[in-house]
C-alpha cells in the first residue's frame, strides 16, 4: 500500500513538474526572442530610424519610416476588409442556417485557415497583381484579409456559442426578434472574446511576409496605395538576406519595432476591452 502511494505521488510530482517546465518554456520563448531582438536591434534604434527613408546598398544609417507606414496602411486596409466579413460570417455560423450550409462554411474556413500563407500570396498575385500589372498595397491588403477572415469568423463563432442559451431565450421571451437579440444581447455578451480574437488575428497578419512578397512587394521610397509598398516583414526579409552587416543590424531593429508595435496594440486593446461587465459563467 505504501509503495503504491509513493509511486502515485511520484507520478503526480513528475507530471506537475513536466507541465510546469512546459509552461515555463512557453513563456520564456517570448522573453528570449524579445531579449535577442533588443540585444541586436536596440543599437540601431535612433530617432532617424523612425523618420528617414532607407539609404542605398551598403550605406549605413537611414531609416524604415516608409516600411512602418506601409505596414500600418496594409494592415489597416486588411482589417477594414477582413474583420467585418469575418465577423458577420462568424455570426452566421453561430446563429443562422440549418446544418449543412454552416457545416460547409465552417469546414471551408478551417481549410482556409490551414492554407500556407505563401499559397495565399500566389493566389493574390494571380487574381490581383497580374490583372493590374503592378504590385500594390491594395493587393497586399487583400491577401492579408483573406487570411484574417477565417481567423475572425471561427473565433467570433466560438465566443458567440459560449454565450449561455438562457440569455438568448431571455431576450426572445421579451419579444425581441432574432437579429435584435443577437445585436443587443448576444454580441455584447461575447464582446470581450470577439475583440480578443480580432486583435490576435490582426497581430497574426501583421507579421505575415510571404503573402506580401507576391503582392505589395517593397519600395525604397514613400508610395501610394496603388504602388509597390514597403512593409516591416518584407523589409526585415530583404535586409536580413542581404550581404551587408549594416543591413543585418537594421533587420534586427525592424524586427524589434514590429514586435513592439504588435505588443503595444495588443496591450492597448486589452485595456480597452477589460472595461465593462462580463457574463459570469
Amino acid at each position: 500500500m505504501t509503495s503504491r502511494n509513493s509511486r502515485r505521488n511520484a507520478v503526480n510530482n513528475l507530471m506537475l513538474t513536466l507541465c510546469g517546465v512546459c509552461a515555463f518554456l512557453t513563456v520564456s520563448t517570448l522573453f528570449l526572442i524579445l531579449g535577442y531582438l533588443v540585444y541586436h536591434g536596440a543599437k540601431s534604434l535612433n530617432p532617424n530610424f523612425f523618420v528617414q527613408l532607407p539609404l542605398g546598398e551598403g550605406q549605413s544609417g537611414g531609416g524604415i519610416a516608409n516600411s512602418i507606414l506601409g505596414s500600418a496602411e496594409i494592415v489597416a486596409l486588411a482589417t477594414l476588409i477582413g474583420l467585418p466579413v469575418g465577423f458577420f460570417a462568424g455570426v452566421y455560423l453561430a446563429e443562422f442556417g440549418g446544418k449543412t450550409l454552416p457545416f460547409i462554411v465552417r469546414y471551408t474556413a478551417d481549410l482556409l485557415n490551414g492554407i500556407p500563407s505563401i499559397v495565399i500570396g500566389i493566389f493574390a498575385w494571380t487574381v490581383v497583381v497580374v490583372p493590374m500589372h503592378h504590385f500594390s498595397a491594395l493587393a497586399g491588403a487583400l491577401a492579408l484579409s483573406v487570411m484574417l477572415i477565417p481567423i475572425t469568423a471561427r473565433s467570433t463563432e466560438q465566443f458567440l456559442l459560449d454565450v449561455p442559451r438562457s440569455l438568448r431565450e431571455g431576450a426572445l421571451a421579451l419579444g425581441a426578434n432574432k437579429w435584435r437579440t443577437i445585436a443587443t444581447v448576444i454580441v455584447p455578451a461575447a464582446r470581450k472574446g470577439i475583440m480578443t480574437g480580432m486583435i490576435l488575428g490582426v497581430a497574426r497578419i501583421s507579421g505575415e511576409t510571404a503573402p506580401l512578397l507576391f503582392t505589395s512587394l517593397s519600395n525604397q521610397y514613400w508610395s501610394g496605395i496603388n504602388e509597390p509598398t514597403a512593409s516591416l516583414p518584407v523589409t526585415i526579409f530583404n535586409y536580413a538576406t542581404s550581404a551587408y552587416e549594416d543591413w543585418h543590424q537594421l533587420a534586427w531593429a525592424a524586427g524589434l519595432v514590429l514586435l513592439a508595435l504588435v505588443l503595444l496594440a495588443n496591450i492597448a486593446a486589452r485595456m480597452v476591452i477589460s472595461r465593462g461587465a462580463s457574463v459570469p459563467r
Partner: peptide, 19 residues
Amino acid sequence: TEIRRRIGMVFQRPNPFPK
C-alpha cells in the same frame, strides 16, 4: 414577437443581461 410580448417568461436560473 407580439405573442412573446403579451406572454412573458421567467426562467429556471436568473438570466439578467450583462447590462
